[in-house]
Design a protein around this nucleic acid. Structure first.
Lengths: 211, 211
DNA sequence: TAGATTGTTAATCGATTAACAATC
DNA sequence: TAGATTGTTAATCGATTAACAATC
């Protein structure tokens, strides 16, 4: 029973993965139902906010009962777009690239790391845990033949923008960017930045404020 | 000329590293001054928001002139707490740990990666680019002797919480958490989460919405 | 001085919290 | 039914944008 979409705000979207994580966990632990009150204690949000959030995309609970864990988890799963396959390539086969290629957070969610790309002739040709490393020259062809829809950027800062341009030219519309720069790209390309130094500076701010 | 602190909101804090990045770049390129208008075009914010943000911590510009790049950069540098040294250890010497230990975003900002810790006897004892790997048993002693103030968690999910507890017992008050779980820790410990799967799910959401 | 651009107040917009009637 | 807990409206709070007087 889903309401036909009012628009879900970005603040809610950013909380969805967290809801999803907690619901998955509850589900695995065998919980059938959960109230906004119980969930609020676990997640550190207010019960009121949880009800507003869930209502904003019409994931109805049941008055006097609560939310069915499995059902709510499934609704959020689909809302996050996880009912489609994502075929990813990693650009840059350094330590970060390798770390992402083995990342345990992705398994079982239709996120497939298919290949890595680099220009280092020592790396090209190798395979790690079933993920082959190809030369950048082969990127365009590979992306088209394998219907790749996400590129994960793990290259040095100096070449970040130009590699991003190269990725965009293949037709890829989703980029996860680990390079600590602000990419300038066409509006129809979705970028999600993971800026490790920005995050660390938020931490140093907090540490320097606490007396 | 700094106003003695109205409180800076968290929304502003999260934008500070970005301001810092752009100002550092402008400074390196030899710019002396910048107006809120010019900065707004570069950064994709409104000029009004920029003036509000900068004013919230009293980084005054000059009417009719703009902001002095070097001065503004320095003020934000200090506000982020980067005028103090941060001595970090990485917990977990896998690919991610190694990636962070070489991370180019940190250099020249008083962020020092001093050591890595692991329990794998094949890794313990090695040194990579001057960063030694020690056994976890030695963590407490090392932290105390070397005045470590930040721990960067790069361990498998299954042991994330228990390793975090171990870190907290050493007295460390700042944790950067790469483990895709929600840590439960005392309130006086500052946590900055970098949740790679959460970020990716935001991207899959955006990709699935754009038809 | 005149022009430019800030600092700051007021208006708007959006997100969170509170409250409670609806209902399972 | 009575109790519990949602869905939803209203109130509050905070963040962003607009506007303009102050001033370099």
């Amino acid at each position: 029973m889903r309401k036909n979409s009012k628009k879900v705000s970005m603040s809610v979207i950013r909380r969805l993965p967290k809801y999803y994580r907690f619901l998955t966990d509850l589900n695995e632990r065998g919980f059938q139902k959960i109230s906004s009150m119980e969930l609020s204690k676990m997640m550190g949000l207010t019960a009121s906010q949880i009800r507003q959030d869930l209502n904003s995309f019409g994931a109805y609970g049941q008055q006097g009962y609560g939310y069915r864990v499995q059902e709510l988890k499934d609704v959020i799963h689909d809302l996050l777009g996880l009912n489609r396959p994502y075929r990813c390539v990693i650009i840059g086969a350094g330590n970060l690239g390798h770390a992402i290629s083995h990342y345990e957070g992705f398994r079982n969610e239709g996120i497939w790391i298919r290949a890595m790309f680099d220009i280092d002739s020592e790396k090209v040709g190798q395979t790690h845990d079933g993920v082959p490393i190809f030369h950048m020259d082969y990127l365009d062809e590979y992306v088209k033949e394998n219907m790749i829809n996400i590129a994960i950027l793990c290259v040095p800062r100096a070449i970040g923008q130009s590699v991003a341009n190269q990725v965009v030219r293949t037709g890829i519309k989703g980029i996860m960017n680990f390079v600590p720069i602000d990419l300038t790209l066409p509006d129809d390309v979705m970028i999600e930045d993971v800026n490790i130094s920005d995050s660390l500076y938020t931490l140093t701010y907090m540490l320097s404020r606490k007396q």
